[in-house]
Design a protein around this nucleic acid. Sequence first.
DNA 1: CAAATAGTGTCTGTTAGACACTATATG
DNA 2: CATATAGTGTCTAACAGACACTATTTG
Lengths: 242, 242
Amino acid sequence: MTEYTDEVSFLAHYNRREFDAPLLTVDPVLFTYHEAQLKVLLVERSAYPERGLWGLPGGFVDMASDQNLEATAQRKLREKTSVTPPYLEQLYSFGSNTRDKRGWSVTVAYTALMAYQECAAHIETVSDAKWQPLDHLNNLPLAFDHRQIIEFARERLRQKALYSIVPAYALPEKFTLPELQHLHEVLLGKALQKKSFRRRIEDAELLIDTGEKRSDGNGRPAVLYRMKEGSGGYTFVRNLAE
Amino acid sequence: MTEYTDEVSFLAHYNRREFDAPLLTVDPVLFTYHEAQLKVLLVERSAYPERGLWGLPGGFVDMASDQNLEATAQRKLREKTSVTPPYLEQLYSFGSNTRDKRGWSVTVAYTALMAYQECAAHIETVSDAKWQPLDHLNNLPLAFDHRQIIEFARERLRQKALYSIVPAYALPEKFTLPELQHLHEVLLGKALQKKSFRRRIEDAELLIDTGEKRSDGNGRPAVLYRMKEGSGGYTFVRNLAE
DNA sequence: CAAATAGTGTCTGTTAGACACTATATG
DNA sequence: CATATAGTGTCTAACAGACACTATTTG
């Protein structure tokens, strides 16, 4: 091993490829809410490894164009949906010598949320990706450890439903409180008290009344709200009951 | 680009080193509580890059011996402290083309907690590592983005002090409630109501009364407790006030 | 009008904040 | 005894749960 006397000469002679290293990918788990269901964006893999199986819309860091990990996640999502989701947060990094047949590998997983309508058209026409209902993933053959990653992401989102309105990013820009409550109920797997749900959101002033209303043809129309700036970062001091 | 007809032949010809990839390291942020202060374990770097600066006790994945990312974190900590800390949790992954002069790099950071006494002897004699008080980090020259990583870890631990007793892992196996409360107060940067702090811990039955007491010479001796199995995973439904 | 859905009033229960109080140690 | 620290009693405030009630739409 050569010794260097200063950092400049060390860096001049540094060879990044001297040592073998784990493979590194970035895998976004993009959720949406449509037809009273949670759905996740998956891609049918057209190349080896795991060809023919369904996987997350991730990939390798492009060291020439990506400035950081989040940029990689955003780029991969844009490639499949043509848009940038309004919510993107790092979830967890999964790394082991067993999760990928090619050897030691690490993936930095992200959770993303967006409205179904926002990209449905692009996905249906151009893309090889598809929205898959979370409740039917059991029947889909999934690549690598992506089933676990999706489950991990869903569990984290379930937690957030207890103390935030982050799930609202899976809805269109304008949405009703009954819609948001139902989304939370799907995430939590249980009914919520209408009054409790509305009261805490109103008291914290997280939403803006657009003045519009929407009826689905049955019953009284519901007020359409949109999120106030920063509401995604708000956390209630007290959780809903699990 | 060669096309393959089955996965076995694809894997047989797969060359992991065909593409350049980001550097990947694992960096544990090991905190402890000693002399009424939070301290973090740092190493004075003896080789380039960032030689002479203080850095986290991390390093590259050893693909031959490490089964997964947590194993790497554990191994690096064992190398410096000779023991495995009772608390180790993945924190966040930091990755960009600017954080390391050698180029695009990613580090998977972990938060670890352990008692000061547990490894003080080993550190003082054998190791190149040192406990540094968090309040004096401003004066230390830190390597890479490790200052930000430590700040990120501290902020996450501060959050946990609001809804869990995870910080207790920074104390010896047996500790008193006034000790634990003071640790939380240091993390939160504010005084807590003695009654509130004790009541929630007692109601949730998180600690075991060892039957022993300890006096520091002044005043009434305090009961020594130890954590009940699983108490680290417990979260209170309501946060302490920030 | 009935049916369906949106939204409110209000009581109760749980839990943290405030703070005065008691308990147990040392000198 | 005084002083110091540990630990408790108890009232209040905040906020979620429960659930009956009213409001607004369609047919």
